[in-house]
Nucleic acid binder design. Structure first.
Lengths: 242, 242
DNA sequence: AAGTGGTCTAGACCACGGC
DNA sequence: CCGTGGTCTAGACCACTTC
């Protein structure tokens, strides 16, 4: 007998099964706690062997979308909160439904910034875009972010664009860059006169400093961002696992 | 033919296969980049079907221990760095091979600390251990940590004990608590006179403040820790994923 | 007892990689 | 070409939960 459906279409059967379940959950036809079709039911419905149905469910379980209980069944998992998630300023604010603004203070091309070029794995003398932005939440200054990226690889990133959408979305849509993760160094510092004035705090006020290098899925450093956050308006939440 | 070895022993075949591979890697008989036995080889060696051998390798891949390349084979993955890992001070220091000390400054039982009791999901009037510790790395003061835990649930945690081992190991060994994760709030503050003196910095020096609630595997809050870190001696590294 | 997930068999065909 | 991993079959027995 034929083993796999040499079905010609690219999508494996277990993926199709997962898709139907995912869709039911997204549609709301299945809510957290509801029972998903059992392995045997899925096998019959999709004319597939038990192992294949099982494969589909096991992978959904690993993704955290469903929970499986032996002797009992497979159930839609409660919505999982995502921790330590890399989000753009825009995304962060909208996820908390806070009105947010971003203003480009300064934007130029620099050259010869060795440390920053090194963090982006570029030649020391590379031309770099430097963009200084003020982040505001509800008319209150909130953070000062300076970001750097290769001026050669991402030529044409205009100030006008940045006022409109997030840098993340520009990179993802216009440059087909898929961002994957960021390594961040977090420490504390105090406001120097310039930062104090821009952020509207007194000199010497504590600021949270976050230096992040953001990598794309192919492992290349795309962006280096230095952020100074008003400590009275911002707390960084992280979850660590043992 | 018999399907599964109703072998009576508790360990599934795929676990045994994984164990042999893990051991080879730990022993150094397999180094990163080396080829692991293929599915077919493992099936023969362990007298097991292809699917079972496959299951073993697939799970090792998901753990990040091996990489699988179609048409090529299965290879030992380069050692993976662990990010955002919850570690005790002792573990953190030894993982960087830094000589570290910890000194208990103060230890008492308090009562009526509503906010802290609330964070530990205890009644507002609960009795709490409060332990204030100085962390030192190479004779330099480094951090000030105040930790709180239920004095009723963890009676008998003595100062003497704390001088010796880490609180983590006491909880894990003496109280059979398995710690799972911590939620942390990070911000910046400046040194007040007391903190300044203890940490050996000037008043107003920037400090990284980390407030963590540590949970056990059963989802209960076990520990609340307020840490003040000298920003000139400490950077927090985190990785975020998209 | 009936149903569920967990493990397992003894094969099969496919797509891909390296020689 | 041959070996590799990726997908799949049509069953099986076991341990467990629910009724």
């Amino acid at each position: 007998m034929r083993a796999t459906g040499g079905n010609g279409n690219a999508l494996p059967a277990y993926r199709r099964i997962q898709a139907t379940i995912r869709k039911k959950i997204e549609d709301g036809r299945l809510k957290p706690g509801d029972a998903v079709d059992s392995e045997r039911e899925l096998a019959k419905i999709h004319s597939v062997s038990l192992m294949t149905a099982r494969h589909a469910l096991a992978e959904l379980q690993r993704e955290g979308l469903v929970e499986r209980r032996r002797g009992s069944g497979t159930f839609v998992a409660p919505p999982k909160l995502e921790f330590n998630k890399l989000m753009s300023f825009t995304e962060q604010m909208s996820s908390r439904s806070m009105p947010a603004h971003s203003r480009v203070l300064y934007s130029t091309i620099i050259r010869g910034e060795h440390d920053i070029a090194a963090r982006l794995a570029l030649p020391a003398a590379s031309r770099l875009f430097m963009i200084e932005r003020m982040r505001e939440a509800g008319d209150e200054p909130f953070a000062l972010e300076t970001c750097y990226l290769s001026a050669d690889l991402y030529a044409g990133i205009a100030k006008a664009q940045l006022e409109r959408g997030s840098l993340f979305s520009i990179l993802e849509h216009d440059y087909r860059i898929v961002l994957a993760y960021a390594d961040e160094d977090v420490d504390a510092t105090t406001a120097d006169p310039k930062a104090a004035e821009l952020l509207g705090v007194s000199r010497g006020a504590p600021l949270l400093r976050i230096r992040q290098t953001i990598f794309s899925t192919d492992g290349k450093a795309v962006l280096y961002v230095l952020g100074l956050y008003r400590s009275d308006r911002h707390v960084l939440h992280i979850r660590r696992f043992r």
